[in-house]
Design a protein around this nucleic acid. Structure first.
Length: 508
RNA sequence: CGGGGCGUAGCGCAGUCUGGUAGCGCAUCUGCUUUGGGAGCAGAGGGUCGGAGGUUCGAAUCCUCUCGCCCCGACCA
C-alpha cells in the first residue's frame, strides 16, 4: 500500500523526523541544536500562542518583556538555581569584532566587564524587576507573563522536543502569602491541563514532581505529562511554587498592613515549542501529521482539481464561494480557517502534501462536483478505510453548514483516541521493584506503558538510590498525580506504608 | 563528553571493501498524450560526493584531522 510517508511508526525516532520534515514543520539550522521553524510549524505555534495567551490574560496576567541578556552575577544569588543551569549556559563576553591577522574575531579590547548570560529562564532578571516594583502589600500580587526565546546549551537535541534555543511563555508572579502563591501555581497547572486537552487534544496527567525532578530553586514543581505513541512520557508543561527562595535572593519585599517587611512568595510556569513535538507524537500516523482542528493553522484546505483549461476559472469561482461561506462559520469560538490552495501544482501532489501536513479537512473539488453542486472531502483523522483513502461526497451548501460540526467531531475523535491510549496503558497492578523489572526488561524498542504505584515519598540519599535503580531500566519518576485514592498500599520501592501514588515511565 | 551508525541532487538510496573522472527511484522543468484522482511517453536541469589537509598520474573510494546528524549512555523543568 502506498503511504504518504516512507517510514512507519515502528521505527519511531525515524518516523518522528520524517513527519517534522515531510509536514513542513521545521528543519535543522547551521547552528548546532537550533532549528528553523517553517511557516506551517510556526502556524501551530501561533495557534498555541493565541489560545493560551487569551487564557493567561483571562486569569489576570499581563504580558511584558524582559532582556535576553542576564548579568552573570544575577545567577550567583540563588545557589540551587545556578547549580541547575550552570552547565548549559551560553555566555556573551565581548561586544565587538575585529579583523586580526585576516581573521574576524572578538576584539580582546572589547571584553565585557561582566559576562552576560543568554537567558535559560528569567526568574532572576524578572525577580530583579519585581524587587523594584513591589514595596507594599497593595502592589501585590504581581502577575506577569512573557513570550520569549531562551537558550539552554543541551548535549543532545531533537527538533521541537529539546533544542538549544526554543520559544516559550514564562509566567512569573509574586504574592503576599504562600497560600496564595500555591493557589496560583495550581491554577496555571490547570490552565495548562485544559489547554493541552482542549486545544491540542493531548490528554495529560497533572501532578507533583518528585524532589529530584524539581526546578532548581523551587519548593515544589508540578507538571502535566502526556503519553506518546511509543509509550514514553513527555513533560508538556510545568508550574513551580518557588516559596521565598528567589524573593530572599533578590530582595523582593513588601510592607504588610502591620508595617512589617516581608519576603514575597513567587511562582513561575511555562510551556514551550516542545508542545508541537507532543502533538506530532500524540496524533501523527503513518501518513504524516494529524492536527487537531483547534491548533491547525488551516482547518480546511480546498484543493480544486485544476486542469489548465478555460473552465478552471468557473471551478475556482465555485471553490471561492465555498471558502467564503466556510469562513463565516464558527468553531472553537473563532471563524473557520480555510485555505483555497490555488498553487500551480498537480492536484494529487497538493492533496498528499496536505495529508502529510495534517490539515483536518481536505476538500477536493472537480468539474463533476461543480456540475452536481457537491464537494468531495476527506477527514484527516480517519483518512483510510483499510488501505484505501476514504472520501465523502456532500452538497456544497450542506458541507458548508456541517463543516464546523465536523471539525469539532475531529477534535473530539483525536482526543478520545489519545485518551483511550493513555487510560489503557497505565498499569496499576505492579507493586514491587521486581515487577517493574519484569515489565520493562528486554525488547527495548517495544511499546511500554506507564506504571502507577504507591510509594513512601522517600527523599535525599534514599531517593537517589531509587533513581539510580530506575535509571538501570531507563525509567524515571514522572509525577504524583493530583487525583489520589483515599488509601495507599505499601511503597513499591521501600515496602513502607505508601503516602501517595506516583507515575513511573520512560520519558523524553 | 564516551560507545555505535551515518553524511553522495529537494527526499530516499546504490557506488566505497578492490582508486579510473558519479548513478537509480521519487520530486523539479519542457513537450505531446491523458483527465474523478499520488497519470503515460519522450527529453532536460540539478551534485566542488559534509569540510580541510595528505598519499597518488588520478580520490566519493585510501590516510589524518575536523564539522554535523541519528541511536545508546552521561546530561537535561
Amino acid at each position: 500500500m502506498q503511504r504518504a510517508l516512507s517510514v512507519t511508526r515502528e521505527a519511531f525516532p525515524d518516523w518522528y523526523q520524517a513527519v517534522v520534515r515531510e509536514a513542513d514543520l521545521a528543519e535543522a539550522s547551521p547552528v548546532r541544536g537550533c532549528m528553523v521553524i517553517k511557516p506551517w510549524g510556526y502556524g501551530v505555534w501561533e495557534r498555541i500562542q493565541q489560545v493560551l495567551d487569551r487564557r493567561i490574560k483571562e486569569t489576570g496576567h499581563e504580558n511584558a518583556y524582559f532582556p535576553l541578556f542576564i548579568p552573570l552575577s544575577f545567577f550567583a544569588k540563588e545557589a540551587e538555581h545556578v547549580a541547575g543551569f550552570a552547565k548549559e549556559m551560553a555566555v556573551v563576553t565581548h561586544h565587538r569584532l575585529k579583523m586580526i591577522d585576516g581573521k574576524l574575531q572578538p576584539d580582546p579590547e572589547a571584553k565585557l566587564e561582566e559576562p552576560l548570560i543568554v537567558r535559560p529562564t528569567s526568574e532572576t532578571i524578572i525577580g530583579d524587576a519585581f524587587s523594584r516594583w513591589v514595596k507594599s502589600h497593595r502592589d501585590l500580587p504581581v502577575l506577569i507573563n512573557q513570550w520569549a526565546n531562551i537558550v539552554r546549551w543541551e548535549m543532545r537535541t531533537r527538533l521541537f522536543l529539546r533544542t538549544a534555543e526554543f520559544l516559550w511563555q514564562e509566567g512569573h508572579t509574586a504574592h503576599a502569602t504562600g497560600e496564595e502563591a500555591r493557589e496560583e501555581t495550581m491554577k496555571m497547572l490547570q490552565v495548562y491541563r485544559e489547554f493541552s486537552e482542549g486545544t491540542l487534544a493531548m490528554p495529560v496527567i497533572a501532578g507533583e514532581k518528585s524532589a529530584n525532578e524539581r526546578f532548581p530553586g523551587a519548593v515544589a514543581t508540578y507538571s502535566i505529562e502526556a503519553m506518546m505513541q511509543d509509550g514514553k512520557a513527555l513533560q508538556a508543561g510545568t508550574s513551580h511554587y518557588l516559596g521565598q527562595h528567589f524573593a530572599e535572593a533578590q530582595n523582593i519585599r513588601f510592607q504588610n498592613d502591620a508595617g512589617e517587611l516581608q519576603f514575597c512568595h513567587t511562582t513561575s510556569w511555562g510551556v514551550s515549542t516542545r508542545l508541537i513535538g507532543g502533538v506530532i507524537m500524540t496524533h501523527g500516523d503513518d501518513d504524516g501529521l494529524r492536527l487537531p482542528p483547534a491548533c491547525a493553522p488551516q482547518q480546511i484546505v480546498i484543493v480544486p482539481m485544476l486542469r489548465d483549461k478555460p473552465e478552471d476559472a468557473a471551478l475556482l469561482e465555485y471553490c471561492d464561494v465555498l471558502a467564503k461561506a466556510l469562513r463565516e462559520k464558527i468553531a472553537f469560538g473563532e471563524p473557520l480557517r480555510v485555505l483555497l490552495d490555488k498553487k500551480a501544482q498537480k492536484s494529487a501532489e497538493k492533496r498528499w502534501n496536505w495529508v502529510r501536513r495534517g490539515a483536518p479537512l481536505i476538500v477536493e473539488v472537480g468539474g463533476r462536483d461543480m456540475a452536481g453542486g457537491t464537494v468531495t472531502y476527506m477527514r484527516r483523522d480517519v483518512l483510510r478505510d483499510g488501505d484505501k483513502v476514504k472520501s465523502h461526497n456532500a452538497p456544497r451548501e450542506q458541507f458548508a453548514a456541517e463543516a464546523a460540526g465536523l471539525l469539532v467531531e475531529i477534535q473530539n475523535a483525536l482526543f478520545a483516541e489519545a485518551k483511550a491510549r493513555l487510560a489503557s496503558n497505565i498499569r496499576t497492578d505492579i507493586t514491587s521493584f521486581d515487577g517493574l523489572v519484569e515489565y520493562f526488561k528486554g525488547d527495548e524498542d517495544g511499546f511500554k506503558g506507564w506504571v502507577k504505584a504507591s510509594w513512601a515519598r522517600p527523599e535525599g540519599a534514599e531517593l537517589e538510590t531509587i533513581d539510580e535503580k530506575l535509571k538501570g531500566l531507563k525509567l524515571t519518576l514522572r509525577n504524583a498525580p493530583l487525583d489520589q485514592p483515599a488509601a495507599h498500599g505499601p511503597c513499591i520501592f521501600t515496602g513502607r506504608p505508601g503516602v501517595e501514588e506516583i507515575l513511573i515511565a520512560r520519558a523524553y
